[in-house]
Design a protein around this nucleic acid. Sequence first.
DNA 1: GTCTATAAGGAGATAGAC
DNA 2: GTCTATCTCCTTATAGAC
Lengths: 216, 216
Amino acid sequence: MARMSSVDRREKIVVAALRVIATHGINAATTRAIVAEADMSLASFHYAFSSRDEMMRELVAHVVENETIAALSSIRLGTDIRTSIRDALLAYFEIVTADPGHEQVMSEIMQYALRTPHLAHLASEQYERYHAAITTLLEAGADAACVRWTIPVTDVARATLTITDGLTFGWLADRDTAGATRVIEFAADSLARLATPTTAQHDLAPTSPNQMERSE
Amino acid sequence: MARMSSVDRREKIVVAALRVIATHGINAATTRAIVAEADMSLASFHYAFSSRDEMMRELVAHVVENETIAALSSIRLGTDIRTSIRDALLAYFEIVTADPGHEQVMSEIMQYALRTPHLAHLASEQYERYHAAITTLLEAGADAACVRWTIPVTDVARATLTITDGLTFGWLADRDTAGATRVIEFAADSLARLATPTTAQHDLAPTSPNQMERSE
DNA sequence: GTCTATAAGGAGATAGAC
DNA sequence: GTCTATCTCCTTATAGAC
């Protein structure tokens, strides 16, 4: 095996560990299984990391840093906010169904982090990154559709994140793609109702923002 | 230790295993940790179960059979459907926040089941039970409020389940109770819009109470 | 820097006394 | 039926040759 820099070797190990977790679950991610996947010796592992725990810390950090934007890059925005939301949810959901193992890995790693006191803060940081990314997307979507959100956009983002999490978890449990698709239609309707056209210049809010009239 | 029937001994072991999982996570649920919690010897464990796997199968089945209704028994129905839904979601959410460990255990066990080919069907069965329970509750709520659902009640149930799952997962990650509460308000608004009064005797639907009937 | 060999301990499971 | 003692395998981690 050729020499490689310490950083590359650590990266290689982490990526191999992610593959092992995807295939056999986080419980099977022993150092032996990981070095077999990475095609290196057990000693090389402990040359790169002082312990398995240290590797797991780096793995969680790696996931938090690299996983945020991938699912959102494929989103296209349109001029109708409901359609934009629906398409975005469908695009996300298609990523989930196309690679269920990936979401299962994310979920297992989050659970591992939540169980590990030193890593728990990384789980909430990961969640915060998703939240921020969706917030940005919702703002861009509103601009493109010439609408504004009638409640704080961060609250719209949290509702959206709640729905994507629920869709993911539920589909992993029962694989009911048609049912999930119907929920997406409902969610797109409901979230779109939180937007109102910006063409009217007055910014007078209606008495109950959640019951905004939609232009029919 | 006094003798106990085989069924009692197995039950005692399963309950002890659940306590271990709640305290230290499913990875720490070794046979040794479990028998220590159950205050019995290692040999007694293998007298009751032929293997740890067999115990885990029974544990998952135990959870599936006993966990369904607990969260729903406290729900009270009112005459306003939006309020009923909101109160029910808040009641569920309060159960989650009052005992976060419990939901984490359920989540870990579901994940374990999904990873174990022989047990995967139990995960979907568990999900189906939740789905059925919520369906029943939604039907009773609609009756009490003199409304009917404008889309199949099973679809309303799936949307509701999506939201409760998302609320749970998200709150476990970031513990933002206020944010979750705002999502519940949004969800109650959105779900209530799927109902329409039954006071008018004709079953002619009002003009497009929602867009769910839309299909591509 | 990377390897082989091995230490040290934890895991599931079993044997055999009582 | 329940116990103690033990087997065998697997785990993380390290020592020391090259």
